[in-house]
Each structure stands twice: as C-alpha cells, then as structure tokens.
Amino acid sequence: MLNYIWIFMMIISFVSAAITGRMDETLQAFLDSGKKTFDFVLSVGGIMAMWSGFMAVAEKSCLTEKISFFLSPVISLLFSNVKKKSPAARAISMNMVANFFGLANAATPLGIQAMKELDLLNKGKGASHDMCMLAVINSASIQLIPSTLIAMRSAAGSANPGEIILPIWIASVITAASGIIAVKLCGAGEKL
C-alpha cells in the first residue's frame, strides 16, 4: 500500500502542478528533496546512533531485561509471537519507554532494533503480524508531555497553552486502541 500511495502522490503532484501552474516550485521541491534528506539524516543520525549506544549499555547490564519484565503482560497481549525475556521483547520495551517519555530520536533507533528482532522471527516474506503491530503502535504513539506543542502554543500567545494535554491523552489512547484493534482484526482475518 505504501507503494500505491507513493505512486499516487508523485503522479498527482506533477499533474496538479501542470493544472495550477506551479511547475517551477514543484520541480524545485523535487530537486531539493535530495539535500533535505541528507540535512535530515545529518541532524538526527548522530543522536540516533547515540541512543543505540545507550541501548546497548542497558542491554549489556541486563537493565532492559528488568524493564521488559514490567511490560511483559502488555507485550504478550499485543505481540503474538514474542516470547517473554526474548531479545525482541526487550527491544520493544525500550521502544515503548522512549515513546512514552517523548524521546522521538531515541524511540526510532530502538524501534528499528525491535523491528530487526521481529524480522528474525518472521517466517513469511512480507511484514508479519507483530511487525505491523509495532509499526502501527509507533505511528500512533502515546506521549506523556507534548512539550514542543505547548511551547508553540505559548509562543502564539495562548491563554492556557497546556489545556490541550488532557484532550491529547484521551485522543492518544483512543487512536492507539483503534490501531491495535485494526491490526488484531486484520491478523485474525489472515489466519482464516
């Protein structure tokens, strides 16, 4: 599906550019995307490698094992093929912890680590149920404090910049739950 959406976006954009007469800007944006990609990778690549380093320290000292112990009920509920105390369970736990504290640059490399562990358990060629689950949970991540957003609202002169926190928590939980249920249903449908 990522494939079709990508094709759709590329084609529809150049067609729209022809209609709206914005071909110059569109072409410029197309050519700039190469530079933007490397700017992005340079700006987050170092900190991603840094967090992978700290993750390895936590792994070596068996700290991740302790953390995954507390999260193991959640993990076995969500991921059908992940065994307790397995490397996959440990990596998923660390990814969840990082997401919860809003450490996006830490959550991504930890999530990729978890994805690699799940790929080792994957028997098919495409994405397994557990891989879909991990990706969907991360795309609907639950965050404790949306600090960037509050700073932005306060800079824009909001009377109460923090009043969106409670609605965000409620919406986060409902969004994550609907994603999880959707993955579960799709997984169940696949087995039939």
Binding site: M1, L2, I5, G111, I112, M115, G126, A127, M131, C132
Partner: peptide, 17 residues
Amino acid sequence: YFGAVGIKNTSYAMKCA
C-alpha cells in the same frame, strides 16, 4: 521501520495506521 529491515510488502500495516 520497514525500510530499515528491507521489507517492501508492508501487509496491512498502512491500512491500520
């Protein structure tokens, strides 16, 4: 996430997300 492990067929992940 899928790119890092080289998976092209993302199954139902996109639909659900």
